[in-house]
Computed example of a mutant assay.
Amino acid sequence: MAHTPVNHPARPIYRAIGGLTGLYLVVFGVLGIIASTGNEILAQDDTRVLGQGTNLGFSLLSVLLGIVVLVGTALGRNIDVAINQWLAYALMVIGLGGLAFIRTDANIFNFSVTTVVVVLTASLVLLMVGMYGKVGTDEEAEAFQKARLVL
């Protein structure tokens, strides 16, 4: 894609931010698993971790997504770019779905408004990291610069 920067000077910083986001998801998920031990997997109760509503199902999902982000960050080579972008879109769908069903029986992940805000923020951070973390050859970077200057 001509509009995605290649070899952005701040890509190591963006990669670190992506890793920290993955680490946050893992820590939140592990704390959620500990807090919701003994409950049903999709319980709708008052379980809160770091100020966010959660249950065992969402905690397990957070750990899984966090590990995927961390593995992608460790691998690099534009694998992290694809992982971060796709997981960002998935988290947006999860967050907006959670917002839509927040006060209904369909709130299967026990979301609160705080949880929705954090999930959508994490998705935007991962999307930003995915957009600016692309690595390429010098020819690809030059093509991006030429395309950018034409627009």
Score class of each variant (00 low, 15 high):
residue 107 N to F: 02
residue 110 N to V: 06
residue 97 G to E: 05
residue 78 N to H: 10
residue 64 L to R: 00
residue 128 M to V: 15
residue 106 A to W: 03
residue 78 N to R: 10
residue 83 I to F: 09
residue 135 V to R: 13
residue 53 G to N: 02
residue 90 A to P: 00
residue 99 L to V: 06
residue 142 E to Y: 01
residue 94 I to Y: 00
residue 82 A to K: 12
residue 84 N to P: 03
residue 98 G to T: 05
residue 55 N to K: 00
residue 60 L to V: 10
residue 71 V to K: 11
residue 127 L to K: 13
residue 122 A to D: 11
residue 109 F to P: 00
residue 65 L to E: 08
residue 103 R to Q: 15
residue 68 V to Q: 03
residue 59 S to E: 07
residue 109 F to W: 07
residue 108 I to A: 05
residue 90 A to H: 01
residue 51 G to D: 05
residue 90 A to E: 07
residue 65 L to S: 10
residue 139 E to D: 14
residue 136 G to A: 09
residue 81 V to E: 12
residue 58 F to D: 09
residue 123 S to N: 02
residue 58 F to S: 15
residue 132 Y to Q: 07
residue 75 L to Y: 14
residue 68 V to G: 04
residue 109 F to E: 04
residue 92 M to S: 11
residue 71 V to W: 13
residue 86 W to Y: 13
residue 60 L to C: 11
residue 127 L to W: 14
residue 61 L to D: 02
residue 61 L to Y: 06
residue 132 Y to E: 06
residue 102 I to Q: 04
residue 137 T to C: 01
residue 108 I to R: 00
residue 143 A to Q: 14
residue 97 G to K: 01
residue 114 T to R: 09
residue 117 V to E: 10
residue 58 F to M: 14
residue 94 I to P: 02
residue 70 L to Y: 07
residue 115 T to G: 11
residue 79 I to E: 11
residue 124 L to V: 14
residue 94 I to W: 01
residue 111 F to W: 04
residue 109 F to T: 04
residue 135 V to L: 15
residue 59 S to K: 04
residue 76 G to C: 10
residue 63 V to P: 00
residue 85 Q to Y: 10
residue 138 D to K: 14
residue 107 N to R: 02
residue 98 G to S: 09
residue 92 M to Y: 12
residue 52 Q to L: 15
residue 67 I to M: 10
residue 69 V to S: 04
residue 54 T to H: 03
residue 72 G to D: 13
residue 86 W to H: 11
residue 72 G to S: 07
residue 135 V to S: 15
residue 71 V to Y: 14
residue 135 V to W: 11
residue 137 T to I: 01
residue 62 S to M: 06
